[in-house]
C-alpha cells in the first residue's frame, strides 16, 4: 500500500510536470510565433533593384572615367527618402560603356577616381583598383562590381540594387 502510494505520487508528479510543460509549450508557440515573425519578417524580403536613368549616353566623354550621381526615392519601411550616391562610368569608344559600382569590395566605403594616377582609391583602407576595376593594392581582393546597363532612347540606364 505504501509502495503503491509512492509510485502514485511520482506518476502524479510526472503528470503535473507534463501538463505544465505542454501548457508552457503552447503558450510559448502561441505568443512566440507571431512575435518572432513580427521581428524577422523584413529579413525575409529579397532585395530589389531599379533601372536608373543617367541621361543621354552620348554625353559621356570617350576615354574618360566619369562620376554619375543618382538620386531616387526609396521606401525604407514606412519612410520614403531620397537615395543618393554615384557610380563610375568608363567610356572607351562611343557605345562601349562600363559602369562600376562606387562601393569598395572591401568594406563598403566609396571609391574615388584619381585621374593623376589612373586608379580608383578607397579612402578607408587605402585599397586601390585599376581602370578596369581590378584590385591593385590594399585589402580588396575582388574587383569593383560591374553594374548592368542598357541604352534606351539614347539614355543610359543602370540597374541599381538596394
Amino acid at each position: 500500500m505504501k509502495r503503491n502510494g509512492k509510485a502514485e505520487s511520482i506518476s502524479s508528479d510526472r503528470r503535473a510536470f507534463i501538463k505544465t510543460a505542454a501548457l508552457c509549450g503552447g503558450a510559448i508557440s502561441l505568443a512566440g510565433i507571431p512575435l518572432a515573425g513580427y521581428f524577422i519578417s523584413p529579413a525575409l524580403k529579397k532585395g530589389t533593384g531599379k533601372w536608373v536613368d543617367f541621361g543621354v549616353a552620348e554625353d559621356l566623354t570617350p576615354g574618360s572615367i566619369e562620376m554619375l550621381s543618382y538620386e531616387f526615392m526609396v521606401k525604407d519601411g514606412w519612410q520614403v527618402l531620397p537615395q543618393r550616391g554615384f557610380v563610375w562610368a568608363k567610356t572607351e569608344a562611343a557605345g562601349n560603356i562600363q559602369i562600376f559600382s562606387s562601393t569598395c569590395t572591401h568594406l563598403a566605403c566609396n571609391v574615388i577616381w584619381r585621374e593623376d594616377e589612373k586608379i580608383f582609391e578607397c579612402p578607408c583602407h587605402s585599397g586601390r583598383f585599376d581602370i578596369n576595376g581590378r584590385p591593385l593594392a590594399g585589402p580588396p581582393t575582388r574587383p569593383l562590381s560591374v553594374l548592368e546597363h542598357k541604352i534606351e532612347d539614347e539614355n543610359l540606364l543602370v540597374y541599381l540594387t538596394f
Binding site: 521581428f39 524577422i40 523584413p42 529579413a43 525575409l44 524580403k45 532585395g47 526609396v74 525604407d76 519601411g77 514606412w78 519612410q79 527618402l81 537615395q83 538596394f162
Partner: peptide, 19 residues
C-alpha cells in the same frame, strides 16, 4: 545577408534600422 536584414530590418541603414 539574412543577418544584416534581420538586424537592420531591411537592406538600408535608415529609420527601420535605427528604431
Amino acid at each position: 545577408d539574412f543577418m544584416v536584414r534581420l538586424i537592420q530590418g531591411g537592406p538600408l541603414t535608415g529609420i527601420v534600422a535605427l528604431t
